[in-house]
Amino acid sequence: MLTAKQHELLVFINQRLDQSGISPSFEEMKEALDLKSKSGVHRLIGALEERGFIRRLANRARALEVMKMPESANARGDNVTRPAPVKKAKPQIQIQIPVAANDVLEIPFHGKIAAGVPIEALEGQNSLSVPMALLGAGEHYALEVSGDSMMEAGILDGDYALIRKADTARDGEIVVALIRGEEATLKYLGREGQQIRLDPANGSYQPQYYAPHEVQVQGKLAGLLRRYH
């Protein structure tokens, strides 16, 4: 099922593809749906992609393909839509268009996270502008790195870690781990016997061991932003 906004965006994208063969920009989608920021568009696109209504074409900026269209709202007038049977659409000509330098998204910024000894996880109301090219599918947020325990992985104190929300991860992936519901840290995830191991990327630090119930994965590293002073 789709929400009204998801349905509205899907129809808009499909109409633009029919008219020009080119996906609308995030700015055009934001204006068409009367949204306050592009982050809302990003979330809608992610939801449509997860439900199989659209897909992003690999290695093509701003290239979307509509896979199926929903039926109209049901007879009761509910504010939802249901998928119609899949029909083979005519191939759309997709033109690669470079992402403009100012084509950015605003994602939630949740304060600092430790790349060292865990510190208190902060939840803020601020946002961070991020180039769309750094983000893939899914919902993202940003954290400021504090500490040097991940420096050998190229993650330095003061960097902004771009995190894709996830509650599971494979061994060897860099994750945001919430420890005992109170502290967060950025580490490689590992499993050793019956324990969760959080590995640093700095020989000066030792791995941290926890019982499985003490560690909750809250996201996986998707990218980094760095400021040079």
Rank of each mutant, 00 (worst) to 15 (best):
L10A: 05
N14Q: 02
R16K: 11
R16M: 14
L17T: 01
L17D: 09
D18V: 06
D18E: 11
D18C: 14
S20Y: 06
P24C: 03
P24T: 00
S25I: 07
F26V: 13
E27K: 12
E27N: 13
M29R: 11
E31F: 10
E31D: 15
A32I: 10
D34A: 15
K36W: 08
K36I: 07
S39M: 08
S39I: 08
G40W: 11
G40H: 10
H42A: 15
R43P: 11
G46T: 05
A47G: 04
E49M: 06
E49Q: 08
E49R: 07
E50K: 04
F53S: 02
L57V: 15
N59Q: 12
R60G: 15
M67R: 07
M69K: 03
E71P: 05
S72I: 11
A73L: 08
A75Y: 05
R76Y: 09
D78T: 07
N79R: 12
V80G: 06
A84L: 09
V86I: 13
K87W: 12
K90S: 15
P91S: 07
P91Y: 10
Q92P: 04
I93N: 06
Q94S: 14
I95C: 09
I95V: 11
I95K: 01
Q96K: 09
I97Y: 00
N102A: 14
D103R: 00
G111H: 03
K112Y: 07
G116C: 04
V117Q: 12
E120D: 12
A121Y: 10
E123Y: 13
Q125N: 14
S127F: 08
S129H: 07
S129R: 08
V130Y: 02
P131H: 06
A133W: 04
L135E: 03
L135R: 03
A142M: 06
V145M: 02
S149T: 06
S149V: 06
M150A: 11
M150Y: 08
M151K: 12
A153S: 10
A153P: 07
G154T: 01
L156I: 11
Y160F: 11
A161P: 06
L162E: 04
L162G: 04
K165T: 14
V176N: 00
A177F: 02
R180S: 15
R180A: 15
G181C: 02
E182M: 08
E182C: 11
E182R: 03
E183Y: 12
E183R: 15
E183P: 08
A184N: 03
T185H: 02
K187A: 01
E192A: 14
Q194H: 09
Q194A: 15
D199Y: 03
D199V: 09
P200S: 09
A201T: 00
S204E: 07
Y205K: 00
P207C: 02
Y209R: 05
Y210T: 03
A211E: 10
V217P: 03
Q218T: 05
Q218R: 01
G219R: 01
G219P: 01
K220C: 01
L221F: 00
A222E: 00
G223I: 05
G223C: 05
L224F: 00
L224W: 01
L225P: 03
R227W: 06
R227D: 14
R227M: 10
Y228Q: 14
H229W: 09
H229Y: 14
